[in-house]
Design a protein around this nucleic acid. Structure first.
Lengths: 220, 220
DNA sequence: ATAATTTTTTAGGTTAGTCTAAATTTTTAT
DNA sequence: ATAAAAATTTAGACTAACCTAAAAAATTAT
């Protein structure tokens, strides 16, 4: 059975939104920028193809098969992003739309060859983990910088990739994956932060920006 | 104005078939494996978009705009083929279907970056010339090995890429782009040839196979 | 030159994926 | 507990790209 590009996009969205429990028609409608009626239509088709489990008025969840497909797409998307950044010298804010197309390219063994060519990378340019050939996705235990309550040393491990201008702003601040952030002070009033990056002069950062940065706590 | 993947496929076919003069509905129908009625429909749309010039019952020719698009697609296709063979170690008979998909991927500057990454190759894995960044396609003056009338030394410069099993057969004969073929004898009866490749022991080759090999005459 | 054949177009229908508007179900607020 | 609001589904329509069958035009053969 073949699954269209559009169907694949639904599966990816459901995967992304299904953090806890089932995904509502409205949530999908907003995420895909389509009308709710269109979502209902498609969910029926996806259910017919056993990619999701769907009961009227009760939202949708991925089946095992649907989840496998989602992980394949995520693997493809992230590996192509690595290719675009590492090999074609794109910036991290430029690759999403292109990878969105490349992830739908099919070919015997293509993605595993690409994986090997890239040196079996574990993370994409934004720090998101790449599912391995067995589609195992290893999640790290990270915190949003904006939610942290104690001053200390943290390592930038992942950034929110949904907004190119956010990524451009991080570039302007010269914040990259792997950087060490020292959190000096928390302003409780508005959640903004006083930090320094890789031991350079300290800067202020809004809570909004800090929430797009995921960090790993270092032991000193 | 945006041009769909399907429209692009028509443009490529017209380019390929338009060797001399205009292309007939039937020729396109066979090349694209679609019914003639569908071709007529689409030609009207392509004419509306100024990609072709089309008059009822008189076949179709590409406009300047259509020709530019065709060359862009050929450039993309051939560069992706180089990528697949050079970087991902595919064989020359395995890349066509994947490149067919990759050629439709759009992205600012993508193909020029790929071109640079690959070292500005002049030919694809089958020896077809790659249009440069200005879309100039330099054609070589080659002959089909099966049409040659005089014994002598020739260089394999291009092979017919339409048939994977033909390419596999060439691989079995260990014939590659750049190889030197010595044509010892022509059998006029059936057009078959007695040749040797890179000075190894001589072999016979059918006229059919020889016609899929394009060669350049060497001076001795 | 006309009849037969082939090519091409037209007319009307199908499917995937979207839409709007209306109907229905669920949730929330009183 | 019921009314109002929100979410969801149904019904019917649209577009792109295909199809079949029939009509029309062009070509070929007698």
């Amino acid at each position: 059975m073949q699954i269209s590009k559009n169907e694949q996009d639904y599966i990816k969205s459901i995967f992304k939104l299904q953090a806890d429990g089932s995904v509502s028609t409205t949530a999908l409608s907003e995420h895909l920028h389509l009308k709710a009626a269109s979502i209902t239509d498609m969910l029926k088709k996806l259910a017919d193809k056993k990619l999701v489990s769907y009961k009227k008025y009760q939202g949708v969840t991925l089946s095992t098969k649907g989840e496998k497909l989602a992980l394949e797409l995520i693997r493809k998307h992230r590996l192509w992003e690595v290719f675009l950044v590492e090999k074609l010298n794109y910036k991290w804010d430029e690759v999403h739309a292109i990878a969105e197309q490349l992830e739908h390219v099919e070919g015997l063994d293509l993605i595993n060859r690409l994986d090997k060519f890239l040196g079996l990378p574990k993370f994409d340019p934004h720090g998101d983990p790449i599912p391995n050939e067995k589609l195992v996705l290893t999640k790290q235990n990270l915190s949003q910088l904006g939610k942290i309550t104690k001053p200390g040393k943290y390592q930038v491990s992942m950034v929110n990739q949904d907004n190119p201008s956010f990524l451009q702003y991080l570039t302007k601040l010269s914040i990259k994956i792997g950087d060490i952030i020292k959190l000096h002070e928390l302003i409780t009033f508005d959640g903004s932060l006083n930090i320094s990056i890789n031991n350079s002069t300290s800067i202020f950062m809004s809570n909004t920006v800090a929430n797009g940065i995921y960090v790993y706590k270092l032991n000193n």
